[in-house]
Design a protein around this nucleic acid. Structure first.
Lengths: 164, 164
DNA sequence: TACGTACTTAGAGCCCACTCTAAGCAAGCC
DNA sequence: GGCTTGCTTAGAGTGGGCTCTAAGTACGTA
């Protein structure tokens, strides 16, 4: 990206080449959701085809590669549980320019900490699940070999802590 | 737990010792939620104090250690995103006895696979966040030292993929 | 007696992130 | 012309997991 290139508006870069259907395919989001994202300010205004008749329609959306990159990032944030309101905040800051870099970074740092914590939580729970599954597998073995022993039945319940 | 002990109803074990307020404290759930859990069949019927006057009240709940253990497990399942309907299913199977061990195990095996996948997803997204945060931190450095260079400004936008 | 804690019922309410509606218009293609 | 794809608006609807309501009763304690 040369300086000369960067300092001039570039139509083929401002107006992308992907229709909303194509973006639906690529992202897994619905057209409804994509329009919604624009409406709530999460997504910047997407470039449009010029309407041929100059009538009352706004023209069809044409998403750029950059739009797609942003949607991919949004998908990641969504997957990690960031509320839409926070994503909107982040996007607004991004649009406000380079003076907001620190704040943007802080949003991501905070969110990253939450994701780390969530991974830790899930990992701890996974250990419990592992233990339970392992225990069931052992009890399936014990159960089959000592089917007549009622005591084992009671132990199954007590050990598994499954309620009554 | 001796055989003689196991084969007889034990009142002090059937009727626990924790009031609902104490369980609220221990679990972080609300009394409303605890009652709801019973109502929807997730929680087995909790033992009760005998009402003094024999009137129309059911008596106060008295949760046992086993009840608490089950609630702890439910909390883990909840934290890992298992839908309440699935938890109910699991609890019903547990109450149905030892003939359901295989099915119970399968529920947990399936769920465990989901948790693993979720951890993997989060971990992948965490890498993206790490990259972004790192990048912002570098750009804060670059930005401060070359504030007059407009090209860096554009690079910030392009590299961060932050939308417009 | 007053207050705090707990009980019951059925269902309404809340929050979040979509998801869908309703109704009509536009444009391209066969 | 018919079909497909896409446009707009404001807001209602959905699903999940609680959370709260409404109204009265019970019981223990100060």
């Amino acid at each position: 990206m040369s300086l000369a290139h960067a300092s001039q508006p570039v139509p083929d870069e401002e107006v992308g080449r992907f229709t909303i259907s194509e973006v639906v395919e690529k992202t897994g989001l619905t057209a409804h959701t994509l329009r919604w994202y624009e409406r709530i300010g999460l997504m910047p205004q997407v470039g449009r085809e010029a309407p041929r008749s100059g009538g009352g329609q706004a023209g069809r959306r044409r998403y750029s590669e950059r739009d797609l990159a942003f949607l991919e990032f949004v998908g990641k944030l969504r997957l990690t549980g960031m509320p839409v309101a926070d994503m909107i905040r982040y996007a607004e800051l991004a649009r406000a320019g380079e003076g907001t870099i620190d704040e943007r970074r802080q949003i991501l740092v905070d969110h990253r900490a939450e994701v780390r914590e969530r991974i830790a939580d899930l990992t701890a729970c996974l250990l419990v699940l592992d233990y339970k599954v392992e225990h069931y597998e052992q009890l399936c073995g014990v159960f089959e070999t000592t089917r007549a022993a009622g005591a084992e039945d009671v132990l199954v319940r007590a050990e598994c802590g499954d309620g009554r």
